[in-house]
Write a protein that binds this DNA or RNA. Structure first.
Lengths: 76, 76
DNA sequence: TCAATATGTGACGTATAGTCCGTTGACTTA
DNA sequence: TAAGTCAACGGACTATACGTCACATATTGA
């Protein structure tokens, strides 16, 4: 699991916790609906500007976003 | 200060703490020296794959990299 | 003064990020 | 059956990041 995949996993986790659809989150973040899908599935090499957009749309501090066991080395 | 700039700032901070030159860190990360310069100066919209390369080269967990007051909202 | 080391800049071709349009299948509700 | 929502995918297109180069500047030491 690389950071790209872990990022998508974490986005999905937080999005579902808020009961938002991919489309709704994409709209909040100002990015394309289909792009949000591929981000969550770890298929895209997202840029840091879009990372910031998504995290902001999720309404969580950057610090908290990455303060998850998901990002601990060795996790499957 | 956007995330792009904060990222560069944090990279520089951790690199200097280890007394590495930009070139030495760039080599460890497998990227170009001049590219590392522009990353630290917040001039590049780095992708998540290169973010991972740099953080790995800094030899710090992702979690710890972002667990810095730098990333707290409202910081100049 | 010269050489070595470290950092920064602008520009450029190429690779790919990201958008836009549409389709499909799974699931739900009427 | 039909209609709606949602997630995923694909093709075609445009925007932009990647990766590198030549060059510049500053500092340090012989």
């Amino acid at each position: 699991m690389n950071l790209q995949e872990l990022f998508g996993k974490r986005v999905r986790e937080l999005r579902q916790k808020q009961e938002l659809s991919q489309e709704a989150l994409a709209f909040k973040a100002g990015i394309d609906r289909t792009y949000m899908t591929s981000i969550e599935n770890g298929k895209r090499n997202v840029s840091i500007q879009n990372i910031e957009k998504v995290i902001t749309a999720l309404d969580v501090p950057v610090k908290d976003f990455f303060a998850s066991d998901i990002f601990i080395e060795g996790k499957k």
